[in-house]
Each structure stands twice: as C-alpha cells, then as structure tokens.
Amino acid sequence: MLTVSPSSATGAPLPSSAAPPAVGSVRNLNLALGFSTALVVGVLAWVMFVTPADTNLGIVQKIFYFHVGTAFGMLLCLVGASACAAIDLMSPSEPIDAAGRALTEVGLVCALAVLTSGPLWARKSWGTWWTWEPRLTLTLLVSLVALAVMILRDIAGDSAQGRKIANSLAVLAAPMAYLIHIAVQKWGGTHPQVLQGGGISSSDMRIAFWGSVAAVLAMCFSLAALRYRTLRSEGQIQLLRLELSARELRRNRKEAA
C-alpha cells in the first residue's frame, strides 16, 4: 500500500509516482460510509415510524435499539483492538498496529454513546440516572481502560517503545475485562431491576433491533476504516519526511566533497 518503502531512504531510487499515493481506495471508503449512513437512516426511519412503542415503557424504549447496537459495536471494536495489539506485539506490523489504534478509538466513541444513551434510558425505565448495575459498571470500567490505552499511545508518541507499551496494556485489558465482568456481576448482583431483553414483543421490533445492530456495526467498520486511513497517511508522511532529509544530507555531503 505504501509507495515509499523505508529502503528508499537509504539510497534506492524512489518509485516515480506522479499522483499522490493513496492509502486504501478513497472511493471504496466513501462507498462504505455512504452505505452505512443510508442503512442508519433507513433503520432510524423504521424505528421511528413503523415500530410500535413499548406498552410498558412507551416511546423511550426506542433508545434500546441503537443503544444495544453501539454496545455491540464497542465490544467488537475493543476485542478486535486487543487482538490486533497481541498480534503486533508478537510480530510487529504497521497495518495491524494502525488497525488496532483505529478500533480502539471507534470502540471508545461507541462506549461514550452507550454511556450517555444508557442513563437516559435508565432514567425512564429504572427511575434513576445511574445504578451500579453490572453491565453499566463493566462498560464504564472497560471504557476507562480503553481511554488509558489511547492516551498512553498519544503521549508516548510514535516511538517503538510507546507502541509496545500501549499494546501491552491493550493485551492485558482483555483478560482483565473478563475478571471485571465477573467481579461486577457478583458485586452488583443484588440489584434485581435489570430489565432483561428490553421487551421485544413484535416482529417489527425484532427487525428494528437487528437492523440497528447491523447499521451500527456497518458504521463502526466505516469509521474504523476512515481512522485507519488517517493513521496510514500519517505514517506515510513520516516516511516522506525521512526521505527528504536523507536527500538533503546526501546533497550536502556531495557539495562538501
């Protein structure tokens, strides 16, 4: 994908590329984004106009569809990020590392969405903004860990050391998240007001539910691809800068000789 290889910095001729090298296909990415936006709008229209309101909870129950969708998205993104980190730690690879970073950030955005839509729903259905209910607690703690990984990576910069550090933490986060899950289950288990399933009672609701899950996952994929592309472009800029300064050095040496 990269048209400039590190070896070119050491004297090999650059590939003659007149057009700016593209990382991934811009058209495919726009297509994916357009598709997921259309899917989201369609499912949203279905949820608003076709799906009946829940008999017990009323209109607020419609938060549920996309709330669960973003929760799925968060889970998948963060698990994927952890896997990418593990792979990169064992055999370093730029694309895998960039994918891991992109997934971490998209997972974090999803976590924020879950953590705001959750309390809004809970306010109506449980009568309180927040309870230390297992799933809420788990989401909060896991998103804090993901936030730590992201901040660490940003602060440690693009050094090889910083990459290893952040990826180690991301690897550690996976089994820890499982332990946190067990712990908060035991801890918050005394609160019986967990609403199971959100009360899917009609086939319209089922369509809305799976449709919104699919829409959010498609959106997550597109966003991750978008972020992946910026990360790869940043890497490309670094290589180009390296190449430029190498040339300057060579020219200076030639002039001095």
């Binding site: 209109i59 955005v109 592309r229």
Partner: peptide, 29 residues
C-alpha cells in the same frame, strides 16, 4: 418523565458522537 425528550437527546448524542468522529477524521485526512 418525558420519554420522547430523553429519546431524542439520546439519539442526538449518539449520532453526534459518531458523525463528529467521521467529520473530524475526514477533515484530518
């Protein structure tokens, strides 16, 4: 509790976050 208000707020925040992320990344790109 105005459930509709809560729902609209939830959806605005949710899509604001995802859309904001997309716009930021597109601009940066």
């Amino acid at each position: 509790v105005p459930g509709g208000d809560l729902m609209i707020l939830a959806y605005l925040v949710m899509w604001g976050l995802l859309g904001g992320f997309a716009v930021r990344m597109a601009l940066r790109q």
